[in-house]
C-alpha cells in the first residue's frame, strides 16, 4: 500500500468543521476539523485524553457538541443523539461499550431497530435468521446464537458489533480501537473486513493507539493533542516516527499532506 488511491476531488463523505466541546472549563475538543472521503480510512490518533473519543462521540451523537458543524455529503447534518446519527447511516463500533451483555447476539444486533411482526411484537425468529445470515458471512464458525453475549469471546463480540454496522448499511463507520481486545487471527479478520468495507465506498474513522496498525489500515491520519488538531497527514508519506512525533510532541512533520 505505498500509494494513495483515494479520490479526494469530490465532496467528503463527512466533514466535521471547527468542532468544540468543553467539560467544566476544560476544552476536550477545541476547534477541530476533520473529514473522510468515500472508501477512505482516516485514523484518529492521540494520547488518552487528547480528545479523539470525544470528537468521534460528537459524530455518533453520544455527546452533544458545543459548537461546530457536521456535513454529510456536503449537507449540514443535525446530529444531537445516537438516533440522529443512525439516520445519516453513521454507525459506531465501540470496543467495550455497545453490547448489552445479558442479551443474545441477535437482540444486540437489532437493538433499537428490532424487526417486528404485523402486530408490533418483536420477531425474534426473523431477527435470529437475519443474524445467522450476516454473522455466517463474517464469522462462519459462530454458533452461539442463544447465549447472552457475556459468554462470547472478544472477537465474537466484536463481530456482533461489526455485523450490526454492516447489516444496517452504514455509510460512515466509527471504529473505536476495534482490535484492542482481539487475538492475532481475529485482528487479521477485522483488517480484512475493513478492506472489504472500503471497497464498498464506506468512509471509516478509526481510533487507535497502535501506530503500526494505523500505518497498515489507514489512508490518512488526523492527530490530536490536548483537544486540538496537530495535523492531518497522508500515512504513506510519513514514517512511524513522524506520527509518534505528532502524537507526543504535537510537532507536524515538514512534508504534510
Amino acid at each position: 500500500m505505498a500509494q494513495d488511491k483515494i479520490d479526494r476531488s469530490g465532496t467528503p463523505l463527512v466533514e466535521m468543521r471547527n468542532m468544540k466541546k468543553a467539560f467544566g472549563g476544560i476544552h476536550a475538543v477545541d476547534g477541530v476539523t476533520v473529514d473522510v472521503y468515500p472508501g477512505e480510512v482516516v485514523g484518529v490518533l492521540g494520547h488518552n485524553g487528547a480528545g479523539k473519543s470525544v470528537l468521534m462521540k460528537m459524530l455518533s451523537g453520544a455527546i452533544q457538541r458545543d459548537s461546530g458543524e457536521i456535513y454529510v455529503n456536503g449537507e449540514l447534518a443535525d446530529i444531537n443523539n445516537p438516533r440522529d446519527a443512525r439516520r445519516y447511516q453513521i454507525e459506531t463500533i465501540y470496543q467495550y461499550l455497545a453490547l448489552a451483555d445479558n442479551l443474545d447476539a441477535s437482540a444486540n444486533l437489532f437493538l433499537g431497530r428490532e424487526l417486528v411482526t404485523p402486530l408490533g411484537l418483536v420477531d425474534d425468529a426473523r431477527m435470529e435468521a437475519e443474524t445467522r445470515k450476516i454473522m455466517g458471512r463474517l464469522t462462519p464458525n459462530f454458533r452461539r446464537y442463544k447465549t447472552p453475549v457475556a459468554g462470547l469471546s472478544g472477537g465474537q463480540r466484536q463481530s456482533v458489533a461489526i455485523s450490526r454496522a454492516v447489516y444496517f448499511n452504514a455509510k460512515i463507520l466509527i471504529m473505536d480501537e476495534p482490535t484492542a481486545a482481539l487475538g492475532v487471527e481475529e485482528t487479521r479478520m477485522v483488517a480484512e473486513l475493513i478492506d472489504e468495507l472500503k471497497k464498498q465506498g464506506i468512509g471509516i474513522f478509526l481510533i487507535d493507539h497502535d501506530i503500526h496498525q494505523v500505518k497498515a489500515l489507514c489512508d490518512r491520519a488526523s492527530v490530536m493533542k490536548n483537544g486540538q488538531l496537530v495535523g492531518t497527514v497522508n500515512v504513506h508519506e510519513v514514517t512511524e516516527d513522524d506520527l509518534l512525533g505528532m502524537i507526543i510532541l504535537g510537532k507536524k512533520p515538514e512534508k504534510a499532506a
Binding site: R86, A98, G112
Partner: peptide, 8 residues
C-alpha cells in the same frame, strides 16, 4: 451505555 448508544 449500550442502550443509550443504540438510540434508546
Amino acid at each position: 451505555d449500550a442502550a443509550m448508544l443504540s438510540g434508546i
